[in-house]
């Protein structure tokens, strides 16, 4: 039996790949020209969901690799206590919650952005975390305890850069002023907490409901046997 040769090009079209590469490359433009870049990202369609997904995946991978490969001088982690899925959730959940909560609030506050665009903006804002994070992780293994401040410096730098980009993204996507952006971002964080709270309440309610029917069934069972 001869295996059919599966060509890569038959899975993804060449045009799609071209578009993906272009939109991904655009991330480098965005991080140095945030206002201009984020405006064009959605309004001129220079970004893509595919590239955004790729960036989020790269960020997720970075977070997972950091658990294992960051020097223990920086992050002293007991690997036997780490649960992969919890770690994955702790990266993905805040991003998704942010997008949903932000979209929810900005819809009420004359925001122009759609959920798709909010997600794209957030993902592109992660770029500095990714491009600084990977080399920094490797760098941490070549540092002594006194030189840890180099690592912390780059870590903090990437964080500040990310927050600034995120604000710029929200400003451009929703066509907001700076004050309105900051205000809506604070509201978004409150909204994230509310969503988590409602989820917890919902889950406990469901489990109580199920427990009720289970006990009802058992009660009936005892009656008849």
């Amino acid at each position: 039996m001869r295996l059919k040769k599966i060509k890569f090009s038959s899975l993804v079209s060449k045009e799609w790949l071209n578009h993906f590469g272009k939109t991904l490359k655009y991330a480098f433009y965005v991080i140095f020209h945030p206002f201009d870049g984020f405006w064009d990202l959605t309004h001129e369609k220079r970004g893509s969901i595919g590239a955004a997904n790729f960036l989020v995946a790269a960020f997720l991978l970075l977070n997972m690799l950091q658990l294992q490969f960051t020097s223990f001088l920086v992050r002293n982690i007991n690997l036997s206590r780490i649960n992969m899925w919890v770690e994955v959730a702790s990266v993905i959940a805040p991003i998704l919650l942010w997008c949903v909560a932000n979209w929810g609030f900005t819809t009420l506050m004359d925001g122009k952005g759609r959920l798709k665009e909010v997600y794209m903006g957030t993902a592109y804002a992660l770029t500095p975390m990714i491009i600084i994070g990977y080399p920094n992780m490797i760098l941490s293994n070549f540092l002594t305890i006194e030189e840890i401040s180099f690592y912390s410096f780059f870590d903090t730098l990437s964080m500040i850069w990310f927050v600034a980009l995120l604000l710029a993204a929200m400003m451009m996507i929703h066509d907001y002023s700076l004050t309105k952006t900051v205000f809506s971002s604070i509201l978004t964080i409150v909204g994230m907490a509310v969503i988590v709270f409602i989820l917890v309440v919902f889950f406990s309610l469901i489990s109580d409901g199920i427990a009720y029917f289970v006990s009802l069934y058992k009660e009936i069972q005892f009656r008849f046997y």
Partner: peptide
């Protein structure tokens, strides 16, 4: 490293 002695590890490193 096995016992996470940061200071001594750093010296050795």
């Amino acid at each position: 490293k096995a016992k996470r002695d940061r200071r001594n590890y750093s010296k050795a490193f």
